[in-house]
Structures are given as C-alpha cells and as structure tokens.
C-alpha cells in the first residue's frame, strides 16, 4: 500500500509540468489557427455587419492579447475554474461533467470487450502457435483492425439497427423516456452495444496479438518446458502457466491504449450521435473554442494519467519484481 502511495505522489508531482506544457501548447495552437471563435460563430449567424463582428469579439474577450488571456485562464484554473465555453455559452465544467460519463461508459465497455475477448482469443490462438486456428484468428483480427471505425460503425448500424432492428441506430438512451434506476442503466447498455462493438473490435486485434506473442514466448520458458516434461495436461499448462504469464504485458497495454481509445471515440461518437467527450472535442476545434478545447485536453490528459497510475499499481501488485520506481514508462 505504501508503495502505491509513493507511486501516486510521484506521478502527481511529475504530471504538473506536463499539464502546463499541454495547456500552453493548446492555447498556442488555437492562436495560430486562422479564424477565431467569432468567425466560427458567424456562419450560424448567417452574417452580420462590421459593428456586430467587433462587438462579438469584445464580448468574448478576443480583443485582448494572447498573454493576457492565457494568464487569466491559468489563474482561473488554479481556482478550479475551467472557464466559459464560447461555442455553447455555458461553463466548460458543466459541459465536461455532462459528457464525460457517456464517454467513460463507451471507453470502459469497449476496453473490457477488447481486453476480455482479445485475450481469450489470444489464448486460443497461442495455445497452438502456427495452427490453422491461430492463423485465422490472427489475420482476421488484423483485418478488423484495418477497417476504419466510422465504416464499421455504419455497417453495424445498417445490419443490426436498420435491417434487423435489434438495436437503436443512435443516441445514448431512449429520448424523454423518463426511465430511472436499473431500467435506465439497461436502456443505456442497449444503446451502447453497437458503438462499443465498433470501438472495441478495432482494438481487439492489439490485445489478441499481444496475448498470442506472449504465449508463444512463454512456451519456450523453462518452467513451461518443465511442466510439459512433468506431463501435465496441455490445457492446464496453457491456462495455469502460459496464459497467466502472458497477461502481464497486456495490463501495460491497457494504459497505453487509454489515450488512443479516447481519440477513437471522436469518430464513433459522431457516427452514433452520442453526446460524449470526443464529439465535444470536435465541436470545440471547429468552434475555435480555446477554453473548451483546453479543458477537454486537460481532463483527458488527467484521465490518461489516472489510468496509467492504476495500471502501474496493478502491475506492481501483480509482479513483485517491479519496484516502486517507474513501472511502465
């Protein structure tokens, strides 16, 4: 437990400069962008005269210098104030609090799917490396990996929502249904089946191949050879010795994939009209909404840091060889 605490403290301290770099970087990127939040708004306004444009810039504080806006922002941040979104005309914190849970459900479920199914199939494939099953699974999962997520999503919708009508085409829950408690959870889960599949199947290949490689390697290790020599049943060797050993790197992979999955959710959330984090990020970029985009990036960065921390702690707990130092960097 002490080790976990030390690890946590060290991680938090080292992430402060990292977050600062991210904040400044995001601000600079949007500053370099052609067109600002007012330009983005003018389209939905359908036009206005020069006076209106200047008034809007002033009311959004865009007439102030970059440095001034940046200091104001960081100052507010220290008070845990994420600022005001120009695009939505609402506090950034509210927006994030509203959308984050949807994305966490999506990512969590997709990760669980990719991890469990991926490692299971990986075990099947790695149980007899080089067999036909192995090759079929390895190649099939790779082919799945090569399908763009938006295309996979659209095809899933056409087959399972439009033709078969097993699942809804889009959304996170039934509209204005008034469901609460378990019924609502079930409703959300039902809506998430297709998007989770679209996102999860893509990452399936990574876990599958990693598991398989790990297993292939484990077969050559002494204790497995020893177990084989002892004449243990193959099934038992696979599960007890080989798979168990191969699982460790997958845990590390989990942390590495957190950021990638968050990025992948941008597209999946667009296809399935899920009001989540990824779609919010896309809207922030096209609205040139610096406070919102920075807020999103800070929160997703913290999310990634937390996931990695959890992974490290889990890793440290699972593998006694790892000290309290940097586990998986």
């Amino acid at each position: 437990m002490h080790r976990a605490l030390t690890l946590t403290r060290r991680r938090i301290v080292s992430s402060i400069p990292v977050l600062l770099i991210v904040i400044v970087g995001t601000f600079l990127l949007l500053e370099a962008a052609p067109g600002d939040a007012v330009d983005a708004y003018l389209l939905s306004l359908g036009g206005g005269d020069a006076g209106l444009v200047a008034e809007l810039r002033q009311s959004y504080g865009l007439d102030q210098s970059l440095l001034k806006r940046l200091t104001l922002y960081v100052g507010a941040l220290l008070r845990f104030d994420l600022g005001w979104s120009v695009t939505f005309d609402r506090p950034v914190l509210d927006l994030i609090a509203e959308r984050l849970p949807n994305t966490l459900w999506l990512m969590g479920a997709a990760t669980a799917l990719a991890f469990s199914l991926g490692s299971f199939l990986g075990i099947v494939a790695g149980a007899r490396p080089g067999s036909l099953t192995d090759r079929a699974l390895s190649t099939g999962s790779l082919a799945l990996y090569a399908v763009p997520s938006f295309w996979l999503g659209l095809v899933l919708v056409l087959v399972f929502a439009v033709d078969l009508r097993w699942f809804p085409t889009a959304g996170i829950e039934t509209i204005a249904s008034g469901k609460t408690g378990l019924a609502r959870v079930a409703d959300i889960a039902w809506h998430l089946v297709l998007p989770v599949s679209a996102l999860g199947f893509i990452y399936l290949a990574l876990f599958l191949r990693m598991m398989r490689t790990g297993m292939t390697e484990a077969w050559r290790q002494d204790f497995v050879l020893f177990a084989r020599a002892k004449g243990l049943a193959r099934r038992r060797i696979v599960l007890r010795h080989v798979a168990r050993n191969a699982l460790l790197p997958l845990v590390t992979m989990l942390g590495l994939q957190a950021a990638a999955m968050l990025g992948g959710s941008v597209v999946v959330e667009s296809v399935f009209a899920i009001p989540g984090f990824g779609r919010l990020a896309h809207e922030a970029v096209s609205g040139r909404d610096a406070p919102l985009l920075t807020g999103i990036i800070i929160v997703s960065a913290m999310l990634v840091i937390v996931v990695n921390l959890l992974v490290d702690i889990a890793y440290a707990a699972l593998d006694p060889r790892v000290g309290s130092g940097e586990a998986a960097s």
Partner: peptide, 20 residues
C-alpha cells in the same frame, strides 16, 4: 415535438428507416 440531435448525415437516414 422532439428535435433529436443527429450530427452525422447518414444517421438521419438510418433513424428514419428504423422508424426512430
């Protein structure tokens, strides 16, 4: 009247066909 937010263009066609 419910206005359902569907940002992707393909989504509207699918939702219509599925009767949503």
């Amino acid at each position: 009247i419910i206005f359902r937010v569907l940002p992707d263009r393909a989504a509207a066609a699918s939702a219509l066909e599925a009767g949503e």
